[in-house]
Simulated assay, not measured.
Amino acid sequence: MNTAVIVDVVRTPVGRGKPGGALSGVHPVDLSAHVLRTVLERNGLESGQIDDVIWGCVSQVGDQSMNVARQSVLAAGFDETVPATTIDRQCGSSQQAAHFAAQGVIAGAYDIVIAGGVESMSRVPLGSSAHGGAPSEGLRERYPDGLVNQGISAELIAGHWGLSRTDLDTYAAASHRRAADAWAQGLFDSQVIGVPGVDLAVDETVRAGTTVAGLSGLNPAFRTDETAARFPGLDWRITAGNSSPLTDGASAVLIMSEQKAAALGLRPRARFHAFAVVGDDPIMMLTGPIPATRRVLDRAGMSIDAIDAYEVNEAFASVPLAWAHELHADPARLNPWGGAIALGHALGSSGTRLLGTLVGHLEASGARYGLQTMCEGGGMANATIIERL
């Protein structure tokens, strides 16, 4: 088998995903095109050398419809012979794109692939692709009370693991502090690229002055008369402050075989060590990273203690806290440069954003192994183990 390696990872800064956000005036196709061009330029490649582009995007309607990956390749000026596809694994879409790309390299189907993703939540609001849809008869039969949104799942997790409002807000404030410190130390500089015509050099959502006291004044975001009646035992502690904000952004990772990298004179930065993807309870929904991590560790023949850093997507503070409790993970190794609560969660791009953060941290710290996992809509999760080279 071939060895699949990561040669480069780039991303845009993250903009607030609302009208007036720094990236709201940029079409998602153009955001994607910018990171795609940058990957080629930074590595001295011609577009015709790329075997495929695999792109994540969750809300594939409006500006993100009609195979946004192919549109982005064309907008980037790539040769028309370069194919591209858009995939939806919900929040893990670009992590799954990286899996598919690396697995294709390992199987010998590809030499060079670009995986990544985009989401412009200011232009294509969260839930846009669900508008007008109704659950099927079969789904209603299996779940007669209906499925729930992710905020409710985050509340259920907080209740099940006994996470208090203070626990959640303390974690959220720490995420902002870690992210602000990482930016201040220049740790993101090598991977974050400015967007032409946009005055944004750092992630727009990081608030260095966030405190637990400030977060404590926010109201629960998901309690309604309907949800309170359905889940009467919940204490309702998930707020906008301990959740990831709506954001815009794009990211990409250059993946190739180790042999191809050597032939091109490019330095591999990390290799893919193991992969996993699982389904889990669609009501609890966001617990998927727990079994996904267990599966990927089993496949790698490793224990959690052998992993030097973990990137667990902070869709809500309750997710990484429950994950760390179940895996007996070292809190000091969890999202050391901050997570999505501070850095944002531009859905389709988050998987490769986390991957870039993980590679950067392993390099900066001299550590060897990193694990990435993400909760996903519908009760799924991806997990990846990489090894710094």
Score class of each variant (00 low, 15 high):
1 M>H: 12
10 V>M: 02
14 V>A: 13
14 V>H: 02
16 R>T: 14
17 G>S: 04
19 P>G: 09
24 S>M: 01
27 H>V: 08
28 P>N: 06
28 P>T: 02
29 V>I: 13
30 D>A: 10
36 L>P: 00
40 L>E: 12
44 G>R: 09
53 V>N: 02
57 C>Q: 07
59 S>M: 14
63 D>W: 07
71 Q>Y: 03
74 L>H: 11
89 R>N: 09
95 Q>G: 08
101 A>M: 13
102 A>F: 01
109 A>V: 15
113 V>A: 00
115 A>V: 07
118 V>L: 01
120 S>M: 03
126 L>M: 05
127 G>Y: 06
133 G>E: 14
133 G>A: 15
139 L>E: 09
143 Y>E: 08
144 P>D: 07
144 P>H: 00
155 E>Y: 06
158 A>L: 08
163 L>E: 04
173 A>C: 14
176 H>T: 06
177 R>T: 12
184 A>E: 01
186 G>F: 14
191 Q>F: 11
195 V>G: 00
199 D>C: 13
200 L>W: 02
203 D>K: 05
204 E>R: 02
213 A>V: 15
215 L>F: 10
230 R>V: 12
234 L>M: 14
237 R>W: 03
239 T>Y: 08
240 A>N: 10
243 S>I: 08
246 L>G: 12
246 L>A: 13
249 G>Y: 10
255 I>R: 00
255 I>V: 10
258 E>H: 10
263 A>S: 15
265 G>T: 04
272 F>A: 01
272 F>C: 01
289 P>K: 13
290 I>Q: 08
297 L>Q: 02
299 R>S: 04
299 R>Q: 09
300 A>S: 11
305 D>A: 11
307 I>K: 03
308 D>K: 06
309 A>W: 07
319 V>W: 00
323 W>L: 07
324 A>L: 12
325 H>M: 08
326 E>K: 13
327 L>F: 06
328 H>N: 12
329 A>H: 08
330 D>W: 06
334 L>R: 02
335 N>R: 12
337 W>L: 05
343 L>K: 01
344 G>C: 14
351 G>W: 02
367 A>E: 08
378 G>F: 12
380 M>C: 04
381 A>L: 10
388 R>H: 01
